[in-house]
Amino acid sequence: MKPEADKLGVEMAGRSLWADAWRQLRRSRLAMACLWIIGLYAVAAFYGEALYLYYHWQDAPAPYNVPHLALQYQAPALGAHPLGTDGLGRDIGARLLQGVRIAFQVGIITSLIAIPIGVILGCLAGYFGGRTDDFIVWLYSTFASIPGLLFIFAIAMVVGKGLLGIYLGIGLTTWVNLCRLIRAEVIKHKARPYVQAARALGLSHVRIIFRHILPNVFHIIIVSFTLRFSYAIGTEVFMSFLGIGVQGEPSWGLMISNARLRLWYGVWWEMAFTTLVIFVIVLAFNLLGDALRDALDPRLRTRDN
């Protein structure tokens, strides 16, 4: 749009949707706080990954997995173990950090599975209509009718316990909503003049879909990414907790599972810190998702403010 405006010598006072959304987001202190928190967690996740890779490369047992039976159940105190130690004397802070790594892995990889499926199918269904649309609608309504958690667990069971099961379970079941939203939006855009102009210019379907329409529905993808991230994290915690998820690595779900029984004997710290860490990141993603939705969806904005 912009170069054209320049050529015509017209002053365009408007801002793009993205710039506008960013301004609005910046204005909200809550949303910025959430962004900071998520950034912090992301840094922690990278640091955790680096540590993991380092020990993997050194072929040495990682310190967060090595038991020190002399240091069992150390209460949080300033010093070597600020967040205390667990039943095997392992540092809870270090294990939580690895938990961040796993949680982010799950969030990102499941998104990498679910979002392309949802976007591509949604675009195809909305753009081509007809038989394609019928087929894709049938596909997603079938997926949508299978109870979510049960479906995820069943996939994980079939694939086998471990991270792969989690990735595929969550990834293959959560594309439906996004697909539905994208399809509806693409149907709307298809009738717009800019798409008709592009078609009149003889552009290929692929180019119209991915260069012209997709940028206009991209905000849906962003919002959906934020909201599904917290869902993925929560589900991973469930699955690891129930023993069908992560095996042998410090995941939050496993930590809660370990901490649960100790809680009865007054060992509160593992439970407390783990739940706190989970709560903060999930809350941050939920709030950011809301803020993003408000910022990126102009319809909501005019109504609510």
Binding site: G234, F279, V282, L283, N286, D290
Partner: peptide
């Protein structure tokens, strides 16, 4: 409501 939603079921 948002806070309730963010607390994991396990908790």
């Amino acid at each position: 409501a948002v806070a309730l939603m963010s607390i994991n079921y396990l908790v």
